[in-house]
């Protein structure tokens, strides 16, 4: 790694570490949400960017993680880490069991299959209110306690969430750069060629789907401890659609792009809300603008800008 990149990284790290202390509290709060959405969006990005799969079921696993954390800590009084584990195990198991049959489908059939899954899960979250509390939800979820250090405000929880996010990003990068990643992209671009190379498509896709579910569940558990309250409204099909926006806005094949997408989805509505009742319309228009003017996502557009500036810089551009 050259010294210039090192300098950028170091600066970035310092900025990241100092940020929650210098911005107003509600922005630190939004930065926590950004981290949570980054974790959830990573899984979708993996499926979309490297497998060409549109996954509209992330709200299901997000919900499972959140309810597992809520139930284990509030109803059963267990330590928080149990909630994280239970949520992760249930989500991965469900993803495996449902994934095997559903992932045989392709294209928009698969998208509809995941959408159907999200709708079923949402309906069950509402119906089984003895477990989930229904619309009233489960409140009083305790803040996370790290060896006596209580993460009870955004500026503290921020670090925990983002460290988890960075860990997930490392896992994702590992997957993408590995042989598995190569096979995934081969499968995405030409499934016949991949099949000819005796790649077990089904197993591969299922594996990535399970990883996506794991990330979704982690994000859900993180969310439960942040908001201290979970209810069915947070886990509807709308939420799945929001998660899908994240990698597409940022640039589906890029991992830092997920962060950009998460920032967009978290901060833009907040900034726009200062403009009055028209803010929802403006958010829709902003989405349209990003997608029309920057078809490779924000990261792709930034990359193109850099290339153009570099060309201009290196003599006659």
């Amino acid at each position: 790694m050259n010294p210039r990149t090192l300098l950028w990284l170091a600066t970035g790290l310092v900025v990241w570490a100092v940020l929650p202390f210098i911005v107003p509290r509600y922005m630190a709060d939004l930065l926590v949400f950004t981290g949570i959405y980054t974790v959830a969006g990573l899984g979708i990005g993996l499926l979309l960017g490297h497998c060409g799969i549109v996954n509209l079921a992330q709200a299901t696993f997000y919900g499972l993680g959140a309810y597992a954390s809520a139930y284990c800590t509030v109803m059963m009084g267990l330590p928080s880490v149990v909630g994280f584990l239970v949520g992760a195990v249930i989500s991965m198991a469900l993803a495996y069991v449902i994934g095997r049959p559903i992932l045989r489908l392709t294209g928009y059939f698969l998208a509809l299959g995941t959408l159907a899954l999200s709708a079923i899960a949402s309906a069950l979250f509402f119906e089984w209110d003895w477990l989930t509390g229904g619309t009233l939800g489960i409140g009083g979820i305790p803040k996370l306690d790290l060896f006596g250090f209580l993460l009870d405000r955004p500026s503290r929880y921020y670090f925990f969430v983002w460290i988890v996010a960075f860990a997930c990003m490392a896992v994702a990068r590992n997957l993408v750069d590995s042989r598995t990643g190569l096979m995934l992209r081969a499968m995405r671009d030409s499934s016949t060629a991949a099949a000819a190379l005796s790649v077990d498509l089904q197993a591969l896709r299922t594996r990535v789907f399970v990883v996506c579910a794991l990330f979704g569940s982690l994000a859900g558990s993180l969310f439960a401890h942040h908001a201290s309250f979970v209810s069915t409204q947070s886990f509807t099909v709308d939420r799945s659609i929001s998660f899908l926006l994240i990698p597409v806005i940022g640039g589906a094949t890029s991992i830092p792009g997920i962060v950009v997408g998460a920032l967009f989805v978290t901060f833009l509505p907040e900034l726009l809300s200062k403009l009055g009742d028209i803010h929802q319309i403006l958010f829709g228009l902003a989405l349209v603008a990003v997608v029309v003017l920057m078809p490779e996502g924000l990261v792709g557009a930034f990359g193109k800008l850099r290339t153009r500036l570099a060309k201009r810089g290196s003599g006659h551009g």
Binding site: V54, L244, V248, I249, Q280, F283, G284, L287, V288
Partner: peptide
């Protein structure tokens, strides 16, 4: 996917 996002954005705007 970009086209899908376009129509999602338009749907949000219109609603």
């Amino acid at each position: 996917d970009s086209f899908l996002l376009l129509t999602i954005g338009l749907a949000l705007t219109l609603s």
